[in-house]
Amino acid sequence: MNTSAAPAAPRPAPAFASQPHGLFIDGREQPATDGESMATVDPMTGADLTTIAVAGRDDIDAAVRVARRAFDDPAWGAVGPEQRSRVLHQIADVIEANTDELATLDSLEMGGPLMLTHGMVNHTVEVYRHYAGWPTRIYGATAPSAPGQLKYTKRSPLGVVAAIAAWNGPLVQMAYKIAPALATGNTVVAKPSEQTSLSLLRLAGLIREHTDLPDGVLNVITAPARAPGRP
C-alpha cells in the first residue's frame, strides 16, 4: 500500500501578485513620495508575494486633495442619481467578470481557501448591485408648514470619505464602505489592510479601465497598521 502523499498542486499565481504596486491616486498607480515600500506575504508559505507602496503624510494629503477635487468636479458632483446607479452596476459587472483573479488574490494574501474567497467576491458583486438601487430612492422630506411657507429637508453628500478595512475578506469589507459612499455622491480614500491590499488595488485599476467612474473618485492608499500619516 502506497501511503505517500500526492504532491500538492501548484498554487495559482496571477501576474498582478508578482509585480510591485504603488498607491492608486487620481486614476493611476504611483510610488510613495519617499519611495518606501513593504512586502506583502503569502501566509500559507511565509514567502513574499510582491511589494506595495507605503503611504506617508504627503501621500495621504495628496489623495484627500484629489478626492476633494473630484467631489467638486461636475463630472461626479453634478451627475444625477441614475448615472451613479449605472456606475455601481458597472463596478459590479467588472468584479463579476474578474471573479477568479480577485478571489485568487484574496486567497494568496489572507490564506483562505479559494472556495471561501470565491464566495466572498460573489457577495461583493451583490453588495454593489444592492447599493446601485439606492441613488434613485434616497429622498428628503417635507414638514408641516404655516401658510406661505415650505419646510423640507434635502440629503446631500458629505464629501471625502475615508474607508478602512481589515484583512479578512478585504474586497467585500471594502464594498460595504465604498458602495454606499459612491451611491450617495461622495468620493473615497480607501486604506485596505497592509496584509491584504492587492485585490483592492487590482479592482481600482479595473474600474479605471472599464467603468465611467471619474478619476479621483476612488483612491487607494496602502500603509502599515500604524495610524496613516504618522511616522
Results as ranks from 00 to 15, higher is better:
E29D: 09
G46A: 04
Q30A: 15
R68Q: 14
L49N: 13
I25Q: 08
A62H: 07
P43E: 06
Q19H: 08
P43H: 08
V41K: 02
P20N: 05
V41L: 05
P20T: 01
V64D: 02
A53Q: 06
D58E: 15
A53S: 14
T51A: 07
A70L: 14
T50Q: 08
G22R: 02
G56V: 02
M38R: 12
S37Y: 04
G46R: 07
R68S: 07
T50E: 09
F16T: 00
T33C: 07
T40P: 03
V66F: 09
G27E: 09
G35A: 10
R57H: 15
D48H: 06
A32N: 04
L23S: 12
M38N: 00
A62S: 09
A17M: 04
A39E: 12
F16E: 01
A32E: 01
R65K: 12
D48I: 02
T45Y: 13
L49S: 13
R69Y: 01
A70T: 13
D61C: 01
I60M: 15
G22V: 03
R28E: 12
G46P: 09
G22F: 01
R65T: 08
D26G: 13
F16I: 00
E29C: 04
R28C: 03
V54I: 02
S37P: 01
D26T: 03
T51I: 03
A67F: 09
I60T: 10
A47F: 03
P20I: 00
G22N: 00
A32S: 15
